[in-house]
Design a protein around this nucleic acid. Sequence first.
DNA 1: CTTTACAAATGACCGACGGTCATTAATTTA
DNA 2: TAAATTAATGACCGTCGGTCATTTGTAAAG
Lengths: 215, 215
Amino acid sequence: MSLRENKKRARTAEEKTDRRSVVLSAAREMIAESGFESVTMSGLAKRAGLAKGTLYLYVKTKEEVFALLFVEGLSGYVDALLPHVGEDEALIRAMSMEARENALFLPLMARLTTIIEANLSREALIRTKRAVGAQAARLTTEMATERAMGSGEAFDLVHALFVALQGAAQLSVARPAFFDELPEDVKQVYGASEPDAAFVTAARLILKGAADASA
Amino acid sequence: MSLRENKKRARTAEEKTDRRSVVLSAAREMIAESGFESVTMSGLAKRAGLAKGTLYLYVKTKEEVFALLFVEGLSGYVDALLPHVGEDEALIRAMSMEARENALFLPLMARLTTIIEANLSREALIRTKRAVGAQAARLTTEMATERAMGSGEAFDLVHALFVALQGAAQLSVARPAFFDELPEDVKQVYGASEPDAAFVTAARLILKGAADASA
DNA sequence: CTTTACAAATGACCGACGGTCATTAATTTA
DNA sequence: TAAATTAATGACCGTCGGTCATTTGTAAAG
């Protein structure tokens, strides 16, 4: 995924977008291979075939890379949800399946506020927040029409589901390297809360509660 | 909160616990005054009246400090909840009030998995996980008896509520320094999700869904 | 009271990392 | 062909988490 062999410079806007997407791919690979903590800017630059200084031409902070990945993932996630917002079980299934489909999505979401947003430039933060707001709005309006709800109600429901998802996402954080050496009872504390199961039970209750409320 | 003026050494177990509690107090102050990111080990040592090396006699990593604060906070939090697990609105009120009471609790919870647990020594992680598991169990059994539920059901309900709390906690992350300079529409994205409101709506739906299920 | 043994305390030091900037050089424009 | 522009570079910097050889307060032994 390196670009280095191509010594050409990025002059046009399109070429710059290409560079950026190479960086994003390299980041995806590094995260998948060895986790977030292993992503360093020098490492990422090398992997993308760039010098560190060049990387900083395309991104103002390390976390901006993660923010871009998250926004991209969120957009695809909402795409996948839209056809199913009308029916409880289908929606839950879509939410949990799609999260498993894009393995980076929950880990990114888990880090969204405390790590990613906390380290964005003003401009990157604005872009990110706008994108998130837009996706939430997309879901909310679809939910309102599909379920014939008031927009306030739909707003609450969407947000409740995403609060649950973000909570469950925390459980998607990779286990420590020494997990196997942990005492049995500690391993069970991990086992007691798998991200997927946690989300599904919470989401079921939420949707049932919402159905109950409008009935 | 410094201990420095007292040049005595900590010999007994009790004196060591004292040292540790001085460190925790110093950390609380620093977080309250200027946020998590401002806590450095040298700064914390100075504030506690210790040399950096001494601080590392009491704690293996920086995040162990946060873990200790969290466990302490969680214990008090569950204490406050126990009397109210029987009734929906009382429980919600207790959860949201108590979270506001201890201003550090949600911010710590928001960082629990991605930052804190990710940087604990094996021993500290074991202690932390055990403590969390114990508090969860305490709540679950109380919930089961008080609501005459099966323990599986109670387990699910407790976990759903805490998933929501952890999701809402993400919204408690401090706003950026340049928040005021953000465009109006971006500020509104922040406004659309206050931690307290987000938790309360999600929790209401969850509890309503649970009531519906057992009816 | 003095000496010895122990372990608490210290802070200089180290490596890693995020981020910067003066300089180089590819490409376009005049 | 020369001048102007701007992408690219990587040496460099400051900060920070964490370590460890040394110092020194304290208790036990003689």
